[in-house]
Amino acid sequence: MAELLEVRNLSKRFKGVRALQDVSFHIRQGETVGLIGPNGAGKSTLVNVLCGQLQHDAGDIMLEGTDFSGMRSHQRCHIGLSRTYQIPRPFPDLVVLYNVIPSVLCGRKDSSPNLEEATKEALYYLEFVGLSDKQHTEARDLTIYELRLLELARALATKPRLLFVDEVMAGLNPGETDKAVELMSSIKQTFGVTICWIEHVMSVLMEAAQRIIALDRGIKIADGTPEEVANDQKVIEAYLGSEWRQYA
């Protein structure tokens, strides 16, 4: 498998907080990589830095060997990076359908479908995640579960090569969690997209991910198969005193 994303010595600090310190890792084409870490580990910051919502302070970020650190976030989307937000950020005043159409219209540089085609395509993604019966609902009126689905539909509609999923599970009830896990695996099967899946808890990633990276206080503490990471001393320590034991 070829390397799709290569991250070298990535650092990001906020006033006084070192959110990311010298983080290096790679993601291969077709992989599903889990990214775990306790609250405040820097997981969301990593996605923000890679997708262009934040600028990093130091380090190299490359997609298939091309450095994209100078690109703005719409350009990063055009080369195939897409993401969901941990706290869903829909376009609240627009109906669900119109939340997805813009991704189809603008997500890729090479295709510019007309409005009618884009609507059809957007509906396909809504059907895929199971939101088509809500297409006329304003996004502000959706439940948290539906918002997560909408986040996924909107991200998928840009036809990403590498999809960052920032915590789909948080705040869902057990039934919804199961459905979300199923959806994630059918996303993998249908679109064959490379996924970087972030979760606060590790259990769901044990099966879904081929590899897991663990962050703690901005530092990468482990990188390996789910079994290796689950038994890693540093990982266990990082989670000690947190909810780790009840989930592991």
């Binding site: 997708c51 262009g52 919502q53 703005r72 976030s73 719409h74 989307c77 055009h78 897409s82 993401r83 937000y85 950020r89 376009f91 609240p92 005043d93 627009l94 119109y98 159409i101 813009p102 991704s103 219209l105 603008c106 997500g107 890729r108 540089k109 007309n114 409005l115 884009a118 909107r154 991200a155 509609a157 840009t158």
Partner: peptide
């Protein structure tokens, strides 16, 4: 299509840019 882009900008600029606008 420009109207749709505008309405996303009007709702959430950062997210709009993130989906390629």
């Amino acid at each position: 299509r420009y109207g749709i882009m505008m309405s996303t900008i009007n709702d959430d600029e950062e997210v709009a840019e993130g989906i390629g606008i």
